[in-house]
Structures are given as structure tokens and as C-alpha cells.
Nucleic acid binder design. Structure first.
Length: 828
RNA sequence: GCCGAAGUGGCGGAAUUGGCAGACGCACUGGACUCAAAAUCCAGCGGGGCUCACCCCCCGUGUGGGUUCGACUCCCACCUUCGGCACCA
């Protein structure tokens, strides 16, 4: 095969893409003796067009997959579509296109764009969550959760997005607004489906320790989101009734400092305690006012409260304590009621000061006497108990245990762990999602659809209401059915599932994507899981990653898989910026991947995006730098073109040890580059420095070609350098390297070659430059044999005329020598 | 407010274990090639001083201190930017 004089990516790229597809070179075999490696990038929502964030995500993953393949691993590298979701439905309402058509068209379009990038996916394993063969198993998983009591329906105050016309999970509310459309979220009382993720709170927290391959940042975010706190639940008897008021506190040691109690406005006792009293109206007005506030307004409002007229009894001191209702107490956390200890909690302090409630210190810091009147803020530190009866003098740390024990003994309380994490609200009042497989029967109530009747197919013949109301609600063919239990008339659930459910198990489906007997084949799942490397945006740090971990644990408990965690190593890539801001239509700073690929080719686009910054960091787009990468590929091409005849029939390097001078040096650079590129990819994912090392190798070959006359060149060394450069560059720029590889005379794909190994002996330098410092400042450099010992180095350096001159008349205090590096002379 | 990450030339970034700061690339400047341009190639490119040829010297990794023979790297304090959490009792 001959090589053209100029690099025409427009011919080369489609040619190889087609060849690779014909020969199925990226298809993962069903069985193999090689060790497995599962490389996964977060699958995209099929919005219609690829953006630069996708290009970055998938370029990173492709380098990893190709590198691991060349290293001899059996690599699973699949791609698919997170294909349910609101934009499809909005397109239907706006443009009259059916969500299914819209979605499948987009998938087709994006798939061809992905193919143009030359990504090494096994397309036979493609999945789309909106396909009945997929969501059938999403429904199956729902039924398993239902069966095991991990799925339930309840009426609760939920987040409602008026623009999306649906409820949202807690995780989908950001700063009181819908994470999708930024509309202010309202609170509504609705009956909704939940998954009991809170049952897994402790395990989700504990197993973060297994995830040493995750960024610390993501682990901390999950830890905060789960929000474990240890404390106690304490019962206070309400005076004059049989009622008991229960509170959760992390500070049972301050119980003698309680001077009031506060209930959440939604707390059931509020009505009970005030009914028929003179306080009823004031309290009801207050509750109404607070309830009408949005969550955001409520959390930013100043603390307010009103007295209910009721009192309760401190279980340890017997003291009578007033009960208030407060806007800052949340019903959903703990028991929906808190004890007020103004001396030792800043919020309580502010509240008590505002309403002139008493403040009583019960913890005394060492060496200081706390006087209630003098306090300017709550004392939240450690100390010794005072004003606390039998516990006086005890350290507060001990008192936490002692008081909890005492309460437990009296049946007035118990140790308790609370989590910030709430159950996952999974139902959505929208059409384009997985139907919830539940049937409501007048006689039997909510009945799960039997497994053999799955999937509950989403009907496609539906009309869309501009209000966003789900077309399922008014679709009699879908809604009306018979009860699986009694055969009587019944109605289907019309809510669909949160799309995060679809994406919480797709990584398992890839292991056996056409399995019909279950969501996946256990043997296949056990062979491939866990995902060795997961790559995606940090915006999924909580939602998707937490839900997937929850599902994995649930599947593990059911014996469906052996692994406990889905993703062993996680790489969170940074954003692609233009002019310092995230690319967005509204800012008008979008660079389209299509244009770039058309102008420079996929190899250039990939190379730039990997070269411009390390993957975790944000990347600033630069058209000029893209041109630079294109220039580099042209430079590589020209180098091959000019040397191809010379190296075509060159044998492998023999008697490497006997090489000298420039030939030895070129070989050293070749092997040093192999080492550096291998380590940069493997250990650090620093593709930018790997690429710069390849550039240096190419520069070195240029220098060799231009400085050494042709007759004197060592064609074997030259060939080794050029061949290595192609192999090292192959994961980054798959098309050009394939073309050059074949030009070297090989028939088999470069992507099926073994990753090059470096020869340790070739790395050894005979002579090294030693830096000479005087008092830590570089003053000279000397060339010494690489194996020169410490004493010889010192001796040699001290004899240098320049050194003698610089230290003359000064006292040499000591001389430090680091072999291969430097000599530092310390003088006074 | 709390937690975390980062701060290095005109720009993106490098320095992996405390040992030559600025690799590689972009931009820029000068030169070669050309009738000319593009492309390509060569050289220069942190700031300042001194020579103004070579050399040499001083300063320099957000700021101020410290440890060390030696600090972009370790420690303390502070400033700035970005990200996350934020009545969670």
C-alpha cells in the first residue's frame, strides 16, 4: 500500500469507519481467556445533536477502551440511549411530532455522529430505555421492589413543577427550582409512589469506603447528601392529655437546658393541642401562612413561631415547658418536632432572644462561667454539665451516653440515628416514560401486574394536551383493564416512572442486552461487573450515581448479581467552556462538533479535546489550538511520507546495546516515550501530557532526519521510532494511525496490536547533566557519567574553575550531592 | 456560615518522590522558500539589569511568614475564584 503525499482526513476517516464496521473489530466476544475490562461512559439523552461535552466524554472513554484492548484485555465498551424524558414530549406538544418518532430520529442522527467520531463501541449491544424490550425489565425491577416492600405509595407534601406539570424528587430540586427548567417548585399534597432508598442509607454510606477509585469530592457530596446524624429520640408528656411529644436531638446532653418545644406547622399535634382553645385561631392562621409559602421562601424567611397554649414535661427535670409552632421546623426530618436549647444551639438562641424565652446554660466550658444574661451567642462546644441534676460535673461527651441510657431505662427515649436522605419519589405525571405496572381494582386495591403480563406497553396512539397533562389519563384503551386478582373491572396507574430509574440499571443490561428471560443473564453480569472505569459529568454526582448504587445493592440482596457496587473507578470530566462560560444557545457561544469534524476531521477534534486540559478540569475551547492539533497530524503524516521508503524493509533493531550517539539517543527517546505515555494513560488519565510526549518523539524523529545524512541513518531505529509513535497515538487518533500502520506494510488493524513495551536498558543514559548549585542557586551545569557516585560528584564539582572562583574566600559548610541530579555547595 | 478544589508567561497548560520553574501546544516577533501569498522550515519568546557579540547578575509560581542545603511542591495565616451543602435539630 502506498501513502498519499497529503493527509486527506475526508477520505481516510469514512473509509476506516466502514471497514471497522464490516469487520466487527470492536465487537466484544461472548467468551475469552483474556482478563475483562468494562469501560463505560454515561449514555446520552437523545436530544438530537451531539455537543462538545459528549465529544469530550466519549473521546476520553474511547482512549481508555482502546488502550486496555491493546494491553490485552477483553474490553466491554457499549453505548446506548437514555431515551425517555420530557423534551420528547414537549416536542410532541409544540411541533406535533410523536415522542417516539422524535426520539428514534434523534437516536439515528446521534448514532451517526458518534460513528463519525470513530468510537470503538460494540453497537450490537446498543440499548434504548424507551424500547419495550428494555422497559419491560424496568417494570420487572419495580415489581421486585414492590414485592420486597421497597416500593410504596403515600400522600406527602411533594415538589411540583408547574412548568413540567409533574412532581420531582428531592434530588431534582436545586435552590428551590426545577433542575430541568428552573421554574420555582411548589409544594403539593399528593399521593405518590416512593422507593425506600432510606432503608439502604447506612449501607450507601458505609460502602463509600469501597470506592477508593472515586474522586474524594463525589464521595463527600454523597456523604453530605445521605447526612447521617447520631442522637436520641426523647418523649415529652403533654400536660393535661395522654399525648406524647417526641423529638429527635443530637444533643441529649443538653436536655436540662430545654426551655421550649417547637412543632412543624404540619405536625399532627398542632391541631389536637389547639382545637377549641383561645390559641386555635392564631395558630391556624400562622400554619396557613407558612404552608402557603414555597419551600425556598420558607427556608429563607426569618424564624417565626407562635405559642400553642400547651405545655409538656421534661422527662428528666419534670419541668413544665411551653410548646410552640415554628416555621423553621421540618416535618419530614426526625419527628417533625424539636426541643429548644437556646444556650447551646445558635438557631434556638436567636429564636429565644426574639421571643424572650428563657436561656439556661447547662454545659460549662473549662475555665469559664456561662451566665445566661451575658451570652451573645450559643455555646456549642464541649464542656461539663451544670444545672443538670444527677449529671452535674459529667463531661458532655459522657453525658450524651449516660442521659440516653437513663431515658432508655425509663422508657422515655432511645438512641437513634437519623438521615437527611429521603425516600425517592419516583412517579411522574407524564407520558414519555416507563408505565408503572400497577392496576387499581375497586375490590382488591392496588394490584401489581403479573410478571408474565409485562411489558405494560406505552400506547403510541395518543393525543397531546398543550397543558402537559399526560395523554394516558384520558386514554380508555390504556386505562381500562381487568384486575389480575379477581378479574373485575379495574384501572391502570397512569403515572410513569422517573427516568432516573431507567438509567439506574442500564450498565447491567449491556452485559446481555438481548436477554429475554430476565433483565440480564447472571453469568454475563458476574463476568463483566463491576464497571472498571465509569466516565461522565460531575453533575450526576448525587442523582444517578446514588440511585445506581442503591439499585445495585438491591439486586445484590436478591442474588441477581454478586457485586455490591456498580462502578469501581469513576472519572468526572470537566465542562467544555467557550470564552470562560459553559457553551449554551442563549449565550451564543456554542461550537458544534459537526462543524469541527467537517473542517478538521474526527482525529483532530479528539486530539484537541484530550490535549487542551487534563480530563477532570474544565476545558477552554480554542479554534487556534484546534488548528495546532490538525497541524500536528499533518506533521506526522509528512514525516511518514518522507521516510516510508527508507524504513519499509528495515528489520527490527538488533544489538541495541551497541548503538551509539544519535542512534542510541533516538532509541532512548522512543522507549522513554513509550514509558511516559503508558504511565500517563494508565496511572493518571493525563492524556494531555501523553500527547505532548508523542509530539516530542515526533519532533525528535524530525531532528534525526534533518541532522543525520540519509546514508548514516539507522533504518531499524528509525522504523522502531515511527512504529511506536503510531501505536502510541492509535487510541487518540484512530483513523490516521490505522492508515499509517497499513502503510508500514501491516494487514491487521493497528487497533488489534499489542501495546508497545519499553526496553529498560534503552532508557539508560550514559552521561547526565548535573546541576551545580551554590547556596541553592543554579550556577553551573556539568556533564558526568550517569553512574558517578556521590563522592566523585562532589570532588569533580569542587574542582571546577567556576565553582572555585565563586566560593573563593568563603567557608564551605557542606556539600550535598544527589546522584544523577545535582550538587549543592553550601558556603558562608 | 460549613465542606472541598484551584490560583504558574500574552493564552491552554507542564514540572509524577522536596532537587534545572515554564515541557508540549497556541499566539506573537524575525528569517528562509516564493514574483507574491498560503503551506512548510529555521530562530527567538517570564520580567528587569549589564553588555548591547558572547557571557554574567538580580527578581519571579495569589499574599505574608515558617521548615529545609534546597520549596510551584511541606507547615501556619490570609486574599481571590469556582464547585457542593445550607434552618437536618
Amino acid at each position: 500500500m502506498t501513502v498519499e503525499e497529503r493527509y486527506h482526513f475526508k477520505n481516510i476517516e469514512p473509509k476506516w469507519q466502514q471497514k471497522w464496521e464490516e469487520e466487527n473489530i470492536y465487537c466484544t466476544p461472548d467468551s475469552s481467556d483474556r482478563p475483562k475490562y468494562y469501560c463505560l461512559e454515561m449514555f446520552p439523552y437523545p436530544s438530537g445533536k451531539l455537543h462538545m461535552g459528549h465529544v469530550r466524554n466519549y473521546s476520553i472513554g474511547d482512549v481508555v477502551a482502546r488502550f486496555k484492548t491493546m494491553q490485552g484485555y477483553d474490553v466491554l465498551h457499549p453505548m446506548g440511549w437514555d431515551a425517555f424524558g420530557l423534551p420528547a414530549e414537549n416536542a410532541a406538544i409544540k411541533h406535533g411530532i410523536h415522542p417516539a418518532d422524535w426520539t428514534w430520529d434523534n437516536i439515528e442522527n446521534m448514532k451517526s455522529q458518534l460513528k463519525q467520531l470513530g468510537l470503538s463501541y460494540d453497537w450490537r449491544r446498543e440499548v434504548a430505555t424507551c424500547h419495550p424490550d428494555y422497559y419491560r425489565w424496568t417494570q420487572w425491577i419495580f415489581l421486585k421492589l414492590y414485592e420486597r416492600g421497597k416500593c410504596y405509595k403515600k400522600t406527602a407534601s411533594v415538589n411540583w413543577c408547574p412548568s413540567c406539570a409533574t412532581v420531582l424528587a428531592n434530588e431534582q430540586v436545586v435552590d428551590g427550582a426545577c433542575e430541568r427548567c428552573d421554574t420555582k417548585v411548589e409544594q403539593r399534597q399528593l399521593e405518590q409512589w416512593f422507593f425506600r432508598i432510606t432503608d439502604y442509607a447506612q449501607r450507601l454510606l458505609d460502602d463509600l469506603e469501597l470506592l477508593s477509585g472515586w474522586p474524594e469530592k463525589v464521595r463527600v457530596m454523597q456523604e453530605n447528601w445521605i447526612g447521617r446524624s447520631e442522637g436520641a429520640e426523647v418523649k415529652f408528656k403533654v400536660t393535661g392529655t395522654d399525648e406524647e411529644l417526641e423529638v429527635f436531638t443530637t444533643r441529649p446532653d443538653t436536655i436540662f437546658g430545654v426551655t421550649y418545644m417547637v412543632l412543624a406547622p404540619e405536625h399532627p399535634l398542632v391541631e389536637t393541642l389547639t382545637a377549641g382553645t383561645e390559641y386555635e385561631k392564631d395558630v391556624a392562621d400562622f400554619v396557613k401562612k407558612v404552608r402557603n409559602m414555597s419551600e425556598l421562601a420558607r427556608t429563607t424567611a426569618e424564624k417565626e413561631g407562635v405559642f400553642t397554649g400547651a405545655h409538656c414535661i421534661n422527662p428528666l427535670s419534670g419541668e413544665r415547658i411551653p410548646i410552640l409552632v415554628g416555621n423553621y421546623v421540618l416535618l419530614e426530618y426526625g419527628t417533625g418536632a424539636v426541643m429548644g436549647v437556646p444556650a447551646h444551639d445558635q438557631r434556638d438562641f436567636e429564636f429565644a432572644t426574639k421571643y424572650k424565652l428563657p436561656i439556661r446554660p447547662v454545659i460549662q466550658p473549662e475555665g469559664r462561667v456561662l451566665q445566661a444574661e451575658e451570652l451573645k451567642e450559643a455555646y456549642t462546644g464541649e464542656g461539663v454539665l451544670i444545672n443538670s441534676g444527677e449529671f452535674n460535673g459529667m463531661s458532655n461527651k459522657e453525658a450524651i451516653k449516660a442521659i440516653t441510657r437513663k431515658l432508655e431505662g425509663n422508657n422515655q427515649g432511645r438512641a437513634k440515628v437519623n438521615f437527611r436522605l429521603r425516600d425517592w419519589l419516583i412517579s411522574r405525571q407524564r407520558y414519555w416514560g416507563t408505565p408503572i405496572p400497577i392496576i387499581y381494582c375497586k375490590k382488591c386495591g392496588a394490584v401489581p401486574v403479573p410478571e408474565d403480563q409485562l411489558p405494560v406497553v406505552l400506547p403510541t396512539d395518543v393525543d397531546f394536551d398543550p397543558s402537559g397533562k399526560s395523554p394516558l389519563v384520558d386514554n380508555p384503551d390504556f386505562v381500562n383493564t381487568t384486575c389480575p386478582k379477581c378479574g373485575g373491572e379495574a384501572k391502570r396507574e397512569t403515572d410513569t416512572m422517573d427516568t432516573f430509574i431507567d438509567s439506574s440499571w442500564y450498565f447491567l443490561r449491556y452485559t446481555s442486552p438481548r436477554e429475554t428471560k430476565g433483565p440480564w443473564d447472571k453469568e454475563a453480569a458476574d463476568r463483566w461487573m463491576t464497571v472498571d472505569q465509569y466516565i461522565g459529568g460531575v453533575e450526576h454526582a448525587i442523582l444517578h450515581l446514588l440511585y445506581s448504587r442503591f439499585f445495585t445493592k438491591f439486586f445484590h440482596d436478591l442474588g441477581l448479581i454478586n457485586n455490591r457496587e456498580p462502578f469501581k473507578n469513576l472519572l468526572t470530566q470537566g465542562m467544555v467552556l467557550k470564552d470562560g462560560a459553559k457553551m449554551s444557545k442563549s449565550k451564543g457561544n456554542v461550537v458544534s462538533p459537526e462543524e469541527i469534524i467537517d473542517k478538521y476531521g474526527a482525529d483532530t477534534a479528539r486530539l484537541f479535546i484530550l490535549f487542551a486540559a487534563p480530563p477532570e478540569r474544565d476545558l477552554e475551547w480554542s479554534d487556534r489550538a484546534v488548528e495546532g492539533c490538525n497541524r500536528f497530524l499533518n506533521r506526522v503524516w509528512r514525516l511518514y511520507y518522507s521516510l516510508l521508503d527508507e524504513i519499509k524493509d528495515a528489520p527490527p533493531v538488533q544489538n541495541a546495546a551497541k548503538l551509539v550517539g544519535v542512534h542510541r539517543e533516538l532509541r532512548r527517546i522512543t522507549h522513554q516515550t513509550i514509558k511516559k505515555v503508558s504511565e500517563d494513560i494508565e496511572k493518571r488519565f493525563n492524556f494531555n501530557t501523553a500527547i505532548s510526549a508523542i509530539m516530542e518523539l515526533v519532533n525528535a524523529v524530525y531532528t534525526y532526519r534533518d541532522k543525520v545524512p540519509q546514508a548514516e541513518r539507522n533504518s531499524s531505529v528509525l522504523r522502531e521510532a515511527l512504529e511506536s509513535a503510531v501505536l502510541l497515538l492509535a487510541p487518540f487518533a484512530p483513523h490516521i494511525t490505522e492508515e499509517l500502520w497499513q502503510a508500514l506494510g501491516y494487514r491487521e488493524s493497528v487497533h488489534r496490536q499489542a501495546w508497545p513495551n519499553y526496553d529498560e536498558a534503552a532508557l539508560v543514559e550514559n552521561e547526565v547533566t548535573i546541576v551545580v548549585q551554590i547556596n541553592g542557586k543554579v550556577r553551573d551545569r556539568v556533564l558526568l557519567p550517569a553512574d558517578t557516585g556521590v563522592e566523585d560528584m562532589k570532588k569533580y564539582v569542587m574542582e571546577q574553575p567556576k565553582v572555585r572562583q565563586l566560593i573563593s574566600g568563603k567557608e564551605v559548610i557542606k556539600v550535598i550531592a544527589v546522584p544523577g541530579k545535582l550538587v549543592n555547595v553550601v558556603v558562608k
